[in-house]
Amino acid sequence: MPVNPPVPPSLSGDLLSIHRLLASPTQIQRRLRTIADLRFISDQILTQRFRSSGGAVLYEVSEPIFNTRSPQAVGPGSEYPKDVTANGAAALASVSKWGQATRITDEAIKRNARPGDEVDRTLRKVINTIIRHVDSITMSAVASAVTQTQAAGDDWIASTATILRDIELAKAKIAELQMGYRPDSIVMSSTKYAYMASDERIATLRRREATDNPVYGGSIERIGGLVVVEAPLSSLPSDDVWILDSTQLGGMADEADVDPGYTVAEMAVQIQTMRLANKDAWEMWGRRITVPVIQEPGAAIKITGTNP
């Protein structure tokens, strides 16, 4: 009578679970989803999506929304006057692979009371570094392409600051281009946001005794119909304020195909891990293969003179 082989020993515990997590792209992807506070500024202000081909993306800049000829009166039985649809200037952008690797040792994992926290911290640092770099490149591209400016009535630190008027005048300047742009976002540094949120004139216009007031721990998520995007100064080309139409300004051209072994979450950062058995460690690296595309420079404007 045959004897069944013994059941293999089973292991359990935090340490084994963490090693299984590091070896599984699916588990890494689930871990990435829990890091909800990591977001690219780039994807908030450049909402269009482009597909690259051969490592580059072809797009048009400042495509007109009107034809060159005006409509004419058409008599009975007559042909309609024809016009040629105008195109924007062709442009080409090359996709770059931005990435970084780091290492997490077995000792760092097992000597932590909560081993999963060490993995989260390592993931967070890698992703944060990639986000900061890609965002700085995106904002530099925006600053280079956008030439419209609106001077502030006074610096936003002064008691005579007219922050809401500055915002509305900048919106009006974009609208007067008659290109179909509808500003929906405002980008500023954390320091500039602090001055705006504590401005007394804006405070008098907000609903009183409402729990979403900054004084009660809330935040200003919208002002003048614009979504407030608060950015670290290190990601901005200057400490100015930017107003834009996120649906028209441009987009990010990502290589969507994921190579074997990588996992990717909604933030578009691809992550892969590898066991270094002879070093008792795991190597973890992340990347984003992308390039910012500024398609409609007229859809954005920079408010200058907000600094003292």
Results as ranks from 00 to 15, higher is better:
residue 28 I to M: 09
residue 163 I to P: 02
residue 133 H to P: 01
residue 188 M to S: 10
residue 292 P to N: 15
residue 176 E to I: 04
residue 228 V to N: 02
residue 119 V to A: 06
residue 241 V to W: 15
residue 116 G to N: 09
residue 192 K to W: 07
residue 127 I to L: 02
residue 247 T to N: 14
residue 37 D to W: 06
residue 36 A to F: 06
residue 226 L to K: 03
residue 111 R to T: 13
residue 9 P to V: 08
residue 220 I to Y: 04
residue 236 L to Y: 08
residue 152 A to M: 09
residue 138 T to S: 12
residue 231 A to W: 01
residue 114 R to C: 00
residue 202 I to P: 04
residue 203 A to F: 07
residue 124 R to W: 03
residue 257 D to S: 14
residue 138 T to E: 06
residue 49 R to S: 15
residue 209 E to C: 11
residue 262 Y to Q: 05
residue 269 V to K: 00
residue 114 R to W: 01
residue 103 R to G: 05
residue 271 I to K: 09
residue 60 E to C: 05
residue 234 S to N: 03
residue 148 Q to V: 06
residue 163 I to V: 04
residue 109 I to D: 01
residue 169 L to H: 02
residue 271 I to R: 06
residue 110 K to S: 12
residue 87 N to F: 13
residue 154 D to R: 07
residue 285 W to N: 11
residue 160 T to G: 14
residue 42 S to R: 00
residue 86 A to I: 12
residue 161 A to Y: 02
residue 111 R to Y: 13
residue 147 T to V: 15
residue 216 Y to E: 09
residue 151 A to L: 14
residue 14 D to E: 13
residue 213 N to P: 00
residue 104 I to D: 02
residue 79 E to Q: 06
residue 176 E to N: 13
residue 65 I to H: 01
residue 182 R to D: 13
residue 142 V to Y: 10
residue 269 V to G: 00
residue 43 D to P: 01
residue 293 V to P: 11
residue 175 A to N: 12
residue 238 S to V: 11
residue 272 Q to K: 15
residue 227 V to Q: 13
residue 48 Q to N: 15
residue 108 A to M: 08
residue 93 A to N: 09
residue 192 K to I: 10
residue 305 G to I: 10
